[in-house]
Simulated assay, not measured.
Amino acid sequence: MVLRFRNIPGAAQLIAVLAAWCAFATGAVAETLVERGSYLVNAVMVCDGCHTPRGPAGLDMERHLAGGAIMWDTPAYTVWGSNITPDRDTGIGAWSTEDIKRLLTTGVRPNGVSVAPQMPYGFYKILTPEDAAAIAAYLKSIKPVTHEMPLPVYKAAAYPVPLPGAERSIGDTVPQDPIQRGFYLASLAHCMECHSRKPDGVQDFKNWWGKGGHEMKGPFGSVIVPNISSHKEKGVGAWSDAELKRVLTEGIGRDGRVLKQPMARQRYFSRMTEQDLDAIVAWVRTIPPIE
């Protein structure tokens, strides 16, 4: 039997109610471009870490993304996390959507100057076109904050080491396959920026994949980046899925220790969906064991 609503009074309202009920029943929720961008920036990519000022009490969220307080001084560059609010004078308010997308995936500013690889654009090349547009839409939507940052100093050419499998966009849509989806999300979270860094600070995505061992120093003190490979003694191979999710969402290790910065990202990762958390765990399981 086919129901025909064309000549029934209130048919349009009835159809709208039925559609809304079906969406509720199936858990389907429409997500705007800005909402998707907020999710990526504030739950996955953790942009606050470099781009939000810090005070005695921690991150100053009243000046969200208005420029970071940490300086990176290397032989190749001296940089700070820039103001990425839509303030026209001290932020990126004059940038177009295409300008933002280009910076994210190529590291090139509108003036043609390449940023330092401290901005992990090598990991962001994997972005789907829609996710890149979503990030740009979100950054254009947030509160503009006037906060002038020191100009970057570039002393020598510096480029990111290519991330295997993330040299280009993953495609038009975010994968549904858990492992591929996990790799996509872990790339945006730039996990291997630290976990594949050798003790001397050089990234090695071939022989040091997930091994850790680099000492990181900052206002938090000193920490050694842990091994997240599937090695059962040296890595996380013996951890349960629940323990892996706990360290991401609560910042508590298997032995009960509380994580320090910069890995203490539970305030962000706890905002991720169960599907995305499960995908990251599935991807972590694929990291070959390495001592």
Results as ranks from 00 to 15, higher is better:
V2D: 12
R6Y: 08
N7A: 14
P9A: 03
G10Q: 06
G10P: 00
V17K: 10
A20W: 10
C22R: 13
T26R: 14
L33F: 01
V34T: 08
V34K: 06
E35C: 10
G37R: 05
N42Q: 12
C47R: 10
C50D: 11
E62K: 14
R63M: 14
Y77T: 10
V79R: 09
W80N: 04
R88N: 02
T90P: 09
W95L: 15
L104M: 12
T106Y: 13
G107Q: 06
P110K: 05
P110Q: 13
N111P: 06
A116S: 14
Q118T: 07
Q118I: 05
M119Q: 06
Y124C: 00
K125L: 07
L127M: 04
P129E: 00
D131C: 00
P144I: 12
T146W: 15
H147F: 07
P150H: 12
K155V: 02
A156M: 08
Y159H: 12
P160A: 02
P162C: 02
A166E: 06
A166P: 07
I170H: 10
I170A: 02
D172T: 00
D172S: 13
P178C: 09
I179E: 11
F183P: 03
Y184M: 08
R197W: 06
Q203H: 11
H214M: 12
H214S: 07
K217N: 15
V223W: 15
I224E: 06
K232D: 09
G235I: 03
V236I: 15
L244W: 05
L244G: 13
K245T: 11
G253A: 04
G253P: 00
D255E: 07
D255V: 00
R257L: 01
R257M: 01
L259H: 02
K260I: 00
K260R: 06
M272F: 03
M272Y: 08
Q275K: 15
D276M: 10
L277R: 15
I280P: 00
W283D: 08
E291N: 15
